[in-house]
Amino acid sequence: MKVEPRRIQEFLGFMVLRLCIGVVLFILAVIFFDIISKGIGVISWEFLTQPPKDGMTKGGIFPAIVGTFAVTVITALLAVPFGMGCAIYLNEYAADNLFTRFIRISIRNLSGVPSIVYGLFGVALFVEGCHFGTSILAAGCTLGLMTLPLTITASEEALKTVPRSFREGSLALGATKWQAIQTNVLPYAISGMLTGAILGLSRAAGETAPILFTGAAFFLPDIPNSVFSQFMALPYHLYIMSTQHHNIMLVRPIAYGTALVLIVLIFTMNLFAIILRFHLRRMKKD
């Protein structure tokens, strides 16, 4: 039996695509294996609950965990509500004119600005301009600004998935635009909006550059006591442990441990996003 050429093409095409997936998964697996195998050894209750000791060669990373958590909360408070608000305005209300097109392009461009530039901007605006000093608040706001374009774009995408017939159906019954959005658009877009927001936040939680000049500290024995305190953060701690410490080889395990905690934290956030999405999608069906 003769095999048609298009069958062969199909077979080869699929093989190439499978190969692509395979390569990506392989690289991911290697990274995970490396970090887990080298980091798991230092993870202990003490590591998670104690501050660094003995010139940061012993002890734990508790202040860094708390710091990253606190900064991420500030980031969320800024990026999520404003991101959703902007997206609703742009997608539901804004006319299509030169001005709004300019806004849209600006948002696209903002998401391409390198994070170190946000860091510098944060110094000028929040640390100095708003007199927040180098603090959790200044760093959180800087990360919030950096995350904003991401949450806006993700929220807009989520709004676009709601069919126009839902909006038209409500308006045709004499609903105001805001009523239509509230009752027949947001409930079906919210899971997508939140998923996008959480993914944006998990990216922000792993950033170093924006917090470098705005509040992250090399070493603090205590956990911060207000939003105006300086703080330790996981990504920055990792950076220090792997490049700035006076005995890098000695603290390598701590660096790997920190990396592992950071990754687990970020994965937990992403997992939460997935669960949320799943849950809300089920609710939508009932």
Partner: peptide, 27 residues
């Protein structure tokens, strides 16, 4: 509100039958 519309493609909201009919009254 004075000029109602029924669309080409049925477009019930993904809510209960009752809530669909009550929607216009509630808003």
């Amino acid at each position: 509100k004075r000029v109602g519309m029924v669309f080409q493609k049925p477009n019930p909201f993904p809510k209960s039958i009752f809530d669909n009919v009550a929607y216009g009254l509630r808003v």
